[in-house]
Structures are given as structure tokens and as C-alpha cells.
Design a protein around this nucleic acid. Sequence first.
DNA 1: GAGCTAGTCAAAAGTCCCCT
DNA 2: AGGGGACTTTTGACTAGCTC
Length: 450
Amino acid sequence: MPNTLPFGTQFSPNQIELPQLLQLIIDNEGDDTAPLITAIVDTFFSTNAVEQQRNMAGNCKNSLVSYGILENGGGVRITAFGRQLHEIADETEQCEALVKHILKNLNGMILIDVLRGMHRNGERISKETVVEALNSRGFDLSRTSNNVPVMKLWLNKAGVLRGWRIDEHKLSELTELSEGEFRLLRTLRPEQYYFLRALCNTASENYQRAADIRQLATATYGITFVESNFSQSVIRPLTDRGLIEIQRATGGHGARTPLVKLTELTKRDIVLPLLQQLEGIIDREVIEYLQKPLEELRTDIDATDSYLKGLALEAFAIRIMRIIGLDFIQTRLKGNETAGAEVDVLFDSSRLLYTRWQVQCKNTHRVSLDQVAKEVGLSHVLKTNAIVIMTTGVVSEKAREYATQIMKTMNLCIIMVEGSDIDAIIAEPTKILEIFNRESLNAKHIKVFE
DNA sequence: GAGCTAGTCAAAAGTCCCCT
DNA sequence: AGGGGACTTTTGACTAGCTC
């Protein structure tokens, strides 16, 4: 499932009647789309502006495709799901079946998750703020599209939502998954997530070797595991959460890979589709951090948990780059785009002298020359013309000299933000201008900001 | 009654794909 | 290889209903 909500124009439950609409589809099955469009016009849109009627019926048909009720193109072809829906005689049950489908297969759970987060943070909820929140989780919805409101209307009709409020009871009834169980899956770290997903993919009830599943995850999703830490970082947490069951292959301090299998919880149908939906946001936990106050981020940057540390520093980077008006493109770019190397965050700007920025966050005491050199190399691939290296520690003298040298000879701006600068920015966010200008003036006598 | 939102409606713009 | 129609998406205007 791509990161989007289905197109929903002219598919609002207020505009059409689902049972009738399904019947029209059955009646026109196998035919060209034109007669179906005519039938939809006659049934639902006959009172609308004449020039617009077919257009609207067309929108309705498009929405049917988007909602997985019709196949794409090739005349009127109903999907297996559409047929199933049509066979449900009771209107309430039919509506619930559609909503189940929305939750399971059409990113409905992501919408729910977003709403939960917004409620928790006491944010104002409107169609627009929801679109914005979805977009910050990697969606690309237009502010004015009907996708969100139409899905909301269906969820309302089935009682999963009341307005924007979630009826958790109704929701878990339909999804057979409680909020707590959802959270278990929602808060997985990437390596745990991909491991579990690979295990779900095997669709096997039996015990399987953990190392095999790990390889499968690597082959399928390109995720790499730190093997020495594998048991601690993946197997243990998943077992503790009741998401997998294990059987030790050896007693005592044996080093043989354990056998793993799914638990009652993760055997459920909902789990795999849900994991698929979560794919778009699993790498974006950093988003959660964006809402925390800067002071809190500062505390987490010093956390002992290196994963938390990394997330917090990344979120901090995004926050301060936003201060200067850069648009966040993506985080943790990896794999083929950068030939295996990693860059933490990428930004675009239309206003500043330097238009594309790459930000690397370093959690270490010192930033060395070769780390800077690696970023310079990546800037060619990513076509960036400004590099920010942000560290909680300090930048080595050699690395600074190298950066200055590069800036003098290439059209590349390298800015170092050290631990002390981070503190200064937290105390006074506008300090960032000063710091950036100081860094670039060093070498090029060019100010980043006027 | 001003200001806001959600929902609806209308229209235009953009993209895709098939056919010649 | 390109023209045209089908399909998709975006945009903006309007209205009802709510709140202050």
C-alpha cells in the first residue's frame, strides 16, 4: 500500500448509497464503463448540473477503483472484495465490511494512529491539520483533496469515529486488535519491524530458525542487522512483547540460533496488512520527536540508549533547520541512492543561497576527517551544496582544516555545529543564524543569511 | 453577524495509454 | 511518435451550520 489515502470524490456516503451502487456495478459487469457511468448519473447525480453529471459519476467510479471495489480500467470489472461486499445483504454489516477493508488495506489504521497522536497532544483537529499530519508521516495529500473527509465519513458511518473522536471499543471490535496491541506493533524499531514482517511473510505456523528469518529480512527489505547484538536488540524485545515465541536450540550459553514462530497475537490476519501500512512511518519515528520541546530533546540527545540518542539528534536537526526555513525532504537516506552510505536528513530551500542541504548527525565525541570526507563525497551523489555536520561532541582540528580547504576550492559550504552550539541554539534558537554565518564566513566570506 | 469549518459542487489541469 | 480520449488529480467557489 503506497503512502496515500484512497481517492474519494463523489464516494461520500452522503452522496451515494452503497448497496444500490454495488447493484449497478453487478448489472453492468463486463460492459464498457460508459453504461455504468450513465446508470450512476441516473441514480445519484441526475439533479446536478447537466454538464457536470458524467464528470461526477466518473469521479465516483474512480473512487470505486481507489477503494478496491472495481479493477482499474478495462471496462467494468468488479474485484473479489467488491463481490464479497455485494453479497452482504444487511446494510450495516456491509458498511462495516467496507470499513474493515479501509482499516486493513487502505491505510485506515494510519489515519487512526495520526488522530490518536493529535488527540494525545491536544492539537486542533480539522481536515487540514489531519492532512498536514499525514504528510509529515510521508504522505503526499493535497490540502483540498477529498480523500481524508470521505474516509472519515465512512468511519463515522460505521461508528469507528464520532466526528474526529475515536471509538476505541468499536475500532477494536472491527479490527480485532486493541489499542495496546496496536502500540506494540507501532513502536517497533526498524530492525524488529522488518524481522517480524519477514516472519509473517513466511505464513508458517511452525518454528523456524531465527538466522534464516534474519537473512530473509535482509534479502527482502535490505535491512542489515548487527549480528553480535541480534538477540538482544531483536529476539528479546519481540519475545517480551509477546509478538514471537522462541525455543532455544541449546541449553546454557549455547550460541546456536533459536527457533522462532508467531504467537496467537501475530497470527491474526490484521497483523500483516497492518505491518505493511506501518512501513511508511516506521522510519519516521523521528516525527514523534518533532513535537517535543527542545529542552526535552536535549535531554534525550544525552540518553544512554544510542537509538534514542540518534532519533533525538535527528529530530533536533530537523527542528533547527526548520527555523531557517528549509523544507525537510527525507530522513535516513540509505541504500542505492547513496551507494550504501547514509545521510541523516536532506533539505531543500528555494530562498537561501545554498539550495540543497544534507545534514549528518554524529553522536560521537569527535568528528574525524574521514567522516567529513565521506559527506563531501556524498554531496556529489545527492547534488547538495551545503553540508551540516552536527555533533554532540567536537570536530577535530584536522577535519576543520579539511573542510576549510574544500570550501575554498569547491562550491560547497560545510557547517559544523558542535555540542556547545547545540546548547546555545536551545537557549536561543535564533543563534543559529550567527553560528551558520560564522562557519561559512570562515572560508568563503559569504554569509548564508543576510 | 463575522469568522470559521466541513462538505459539496464545478471546472480545469495534468497524466496515462492506446491506436494509428 | 504523436494525437485524442479516458482517467486522475487539483483548484476554487459556494453553502450550511456552528461558535463567539
